[in-house]
Design a binder for these strands. Structure first.
Lengths: 251, 251
DNA sequence: GCGATCAGCGGCACG
DNA sequence: CGTGCCGTTGATCGC
């Protein structure tokens, strides 16, 4: 045992209050009650407490913590009966609580670590959507944009457009392979637009690829698919091509 | 600088190969290219490498890592021109690569940490669904279960049942507040069942709560809502009550 | 605050 | 392997 629990207590308390990144490693049992409930059997793990008061218990596999709580209030108490150092973190809205019982502590240290420095990401759906919006004619001749991110009462349409025959066109953009959910979204939006505007409306799903069942559901709903080829170059993504793959009665 | 980069190199290499949990803290720049692309400006951060070869770069906020890669192959190289220790992790399927440039290292250590010990969780949707399945009559008199987790060609139905009038009933269970997606799922499933079986089908959404827009869409589709009260007690969840809140032509 | 959607979603279970 | 969907989803943005 590298630490006496009482020594660790002070170190952990100070660490949490300091707003630094705190790392604690030791044998622990974890209990959670809130949106769900869980118990994690005794074992050696890492507790990671960040400056924003997020608590994460990590095992030696998986990307995500096995137990966690974010934006919590914490207490560090020595339970002399159980001979354990108990770190409790709780939250309201939703009401939840996590209790971490440390029976031994191998390591406890705080580190000065960057807080909010922002990641510059490219190739997001938003970026692709913006690019498409700039020139919808690559998708189909005569297609002109009407609106972006239009809020319906029940959902948000990626791109709203009008084709050369003055039909309304709802476009749903996906950065990765389209799935059933994508189709359900598009179908729902198209239905609402038809119902509101009272005129026939087309729906186009733009994605780099699409699976068989998804494609079948798309067809069943009378929607269209357009293959979206894009490349993520250095500072920005770039659309390489669009290819209409499926037509409906409107084609 | 607590470590010479060349000393750290050996420690990190050994740490990754050992399968232990490796923690590295230092000033770094991170670059990612794969499903998307990103650059993370130079700053002090923590790198967490787990036994399953998952790599995670953590800043001092948020639960999730700012950059990551799972199940990767790694190399640790000293770049004497840039005076940096470069940790690269790459993967195929999908092809992606992350490069971490450490310019200084404050801390590098490996720890023996529990790997796969399993969390016992209660209150999952699966558990609620199982409980409901045991006695559908609490939902509606005369309702009998036909099938659970029935795979359609385009989706999976939580519970399939039959009411006292021999109508088919599709039931979608949600462990938290129902949203538009829940309704879209249910609608899609009901539509498919009707189309396959060729007879009128009801759809019931079971969730602890539902919002206004979601409720409106539900009604528009002719679906029903049933409030699901449950409690997560110690080793298991428990259904406290069900209350039919919305009726359709079938009511 | 709720509402809706994206995410380099991750993770799981089933075909 | 892909396909579908849950998640204590988390995180973001708009109302």
């Amino acid at each position: 045992m590298a630490f006496h629990l009482s020594d660790a207590q002070e170190k952990i308390k100070t660490g949490i209050d300091s707003g630094k990144m705190l790392i604690v490693i030791g044998e622990c049992f974890v209990q959670y009650q809130g949106r769900a409930g869980s118990k994690l059997p005794k074992g050696k793990r890492m507790l990671l407490v960040k400056g924003d008061k997020s608590f994460a218990i990590h095992q030696n596999t998986k990307l995500r913590p096995i137990n966690y709580m974010m934006n919590a209030q914490a207490s560090v108490v020595l339970d002399s009966e159980k001979n354990a150092l108990v770190i409790s973190a709780s939250k309201r809205k939703p009401k939840e609580k996590i209790d971490i019982y440390f029976y031994s502590i191998d390591f406890a240290e705080s580190f000065d670590v960057e807080g909010e420095k922002e990641l510059r990401l490219f190739g997001s759906e938003r970026e692709l959507s913006d690019l498409l919006m700039q020139d919808l004619s690559v998708l189909e001749k005569g297609l002109i944009p009407l609106n972006k991110e239009q809020m319906l009462r029940k959902g948000t349409i990626d791109i709203m457009a009008e084709d050369k025959d003055k039909n309304l066109v709802v476009i749903e953009v996906k950065r990765r392979r389209a799935d059933l959910n994508s189709v359900r979204q598009l179908h729902s939006y198209m239905h609402q637009v038809e119902s509101i505007k009272g005129r026939k409306t087309r729906g186009i799903l733009c994605a780099p690829s699409i699976g068989k069942p998804t494609s079948e559901l798309l067809e069943k709903y009378g929607l269209e698919y357009c293959k979206l080829d894009y490349e993520i170059s250095n500072p920005h993504a770039e659309i390489k091509g669009l290819e209409k793959k499926q037509k409906t009665l409107f084609g």
